[in-house]
Nucleic acid binder design. Structure first.
Lengths: 203, 203, 203, 203
DNA sequence: TATGAATGAGCATTCATTCAT
DNA sequence: TATGAATGAATGCTCATTCAT
């Protein structure tokens, strides 16, 4: 079925083109014609592959987070030490961001913004940012609980701690997106560990 | 002899109405007529007080951050212990957020999004999110440095640590905005302290 | 009745202010607030003296042509020679134009444009440009006929000749309005006489 | 594979529709929807062919004067006698006007009005009425000078005379536009000649 | 009487989507 | 299947006019 492969490939081409333009101009300011030009197809052609601009956005959103999720879980499965797992999550997520960095990071804002705006929108449950974060928190909570059971971590409110860990990461991304020079992403994992894991208080 | 009006007060009324609608629908999807309805005035009246929709947005942005900044610096000036100061910043910022909470917090996403999207826009330097964050990082860095000098904190990369502290806070807000039930804001200060200050690693 | 005089005077003040602004910006681009500012009164005050912007325009129009008409007929009544009368009409009209010149001449375009646009508009018969010109042609035709009877002018199609004489004048004004430097208005009466009256053909 | 259209032809269709409406209602009062209706297309379609209402106006303006200019210069090139050339210019210009007459003549007022209103507007130099008239005056001046050299015309101030000749024509048009019945355009060339060329004074 | 605050009809323009070819 | 010509709903903003004071 070579035709099917072709269709799928072209759809991905358009999706990638869309993500490029989304990242550069923001979702709202991106026009269908921009996406068409970037993809090197006609305006009408896009509608052979996507029902609407919104569907393109949702696809981009989903694609982005699926990629990140699968990379993280792949890496985690090869490691058993809770401390190392925590470190892995941070390192890999940062890697993904730095890799797609100057290209796609800005799009995160629109993902967040739309995800939040749609948080009560049942129709757009394709953008289930809430659920995605719940999963992510659950994953980290499991690691923390395991670490506590194994005596690696102190007893703690694992739910809140998971939130804070994810928060640290998201917040760092936020600052980096705002001002690339303000944050040195390569230093962050160390700081998070020397800080969060060991504590910054002297004793 | 014409109608006597407190123009300043009415401007604030319209601004608050605008913030309500911005928070509910997002800045882009908010129409001037929505703001007018919410403020209980005619469409044209808005333009007696603001030059454009963009000016309303910038005013909202400025109003929001000025309020937060002044509350934080007021509180800090009454406290000298670096550890306490750090705690104060977190507590007060959280308070502000919880206070304006269900009302205005959602608007943060648009502030972030617009601030970021305009990061290279000289004309919109009224929205200097980059600068605001730089100030904020500097403030926290000073506290950390003072704490290190006073022997309260371990030596550390204060710049990155400041970023991470702010990040934790912003990231928590992000999760809370997405899903009010997912994060219990009242627990966060403790977790941040038991975590970040003391470290989560058992020893 | 001093109040009546006051009202009338203020109405004229506003009318003059309006004509100034009309001349400078064109009727369509002139805003009521511009007229109010120029007249040094409040926006609402204008409506105490004029029913609408349109009424101001019609008043300006009428005022302008009444002034010109009365000046011309005053002058004509003191002269009996058809040749001199023709010359007088040209000279006086030019004088009026040069006098109000840089100030009001541009407004002629709007008078013409609106007068023409309203040529089939029964309601706006206040702007009876058609009638004004018919009168004007009639006046000149009488002079020509008198001149023919007195043997000063050749026999001719006086109706068309009257049109052409008025046309020469209007057309010159048109060019002068377009480009002040392109036409030397002081030379025109001579040229019109050395030309039109005597003919440009050598013999 | 999309709809095949002669874009140039359709653009002219829209332009002609626009000129019709401009002529009937005046440029300012003409709405884009009026043009669209007259052209039998959707409002948006106009913007596929013209960038703005202003561009349509400029196109109409240019189209109109280009047509007239080329007709005049075509005719002149076939004639060498200055007297005949002068007559030709009048006759042809009148022909053009009578031809487009009831249809488009009214639009001249807006051409004049806009051309004048924009006389200091650098951006709208597409509407260089001043320049157009300068060219026209120059053309006629050359004919007059040639006529004088050849002994056909008396010595005269050729510059002013050229102005007056053009003026006669424009002014006649003006009256005709105002009141079709007031001027018999077919008689005008004769009158202009029996008058302007030979002089109306008896001797 | 004088004022300017309030108003909303009106309009140029944009752009996602449709559909004839 | 691919295209872009055609479309009109949607919206920010202007400004003549009204009217409470």
């Amino acid at each position: 079925m070579p035709r099917v492969v072709d269709k799928e490939a072209k759809k991905m081409d358009i999706l990638h083109a869309a993500m490029h333009v989304f990242a550069k101009k923001g979702v709202v300011k991106t026009k269908m014609i921009d996406i068409a030009s970037m993809a090197g197809v006609g305006k009408g052609t896009i509608y052979e592959y996507f029902r609407s601009k919104e569907e393109i956005f949702i696809s981009a959103f989903t694609y982005f987070f699926r990629t990140m999720e699968s990379m993280v879980s792949d890496a985690l499965s090869k490691e058993n030490d809770p401390l190392k797992q925590l470190e892995l999550i941070m390192t890999i997520s940062l890697d993904v961001f730095m890799h797609i960095g100057d290209e796609f990071a800005d799009i995160m804002m629109d993902f967040w913004a739309e995800g939040i705006r749609n948080k009560n929108n049942v129709l757009l449950d394709a953008i289930d940012l809430k659920g995605l974060y719940a999963n992510y928190r659950e994953l980290i909570q499991q690691i923390l609980k395991k670490g506590i059971k194994e005596g690696v971590f102190k007893p703690m409110d694992t739910e809140s701690a998971a939130s804070v860990l994810i928060a640290s990461f998201d917040g760092i991304m936020l600052q980096w997106i705002m001002d690339r020079k303000a944050v040195d992403l390569r230093k962050i994992p160390n700081v998070l560990f020397d800080g969060f894991i060991e504590g910054i208080r002297k004793r």
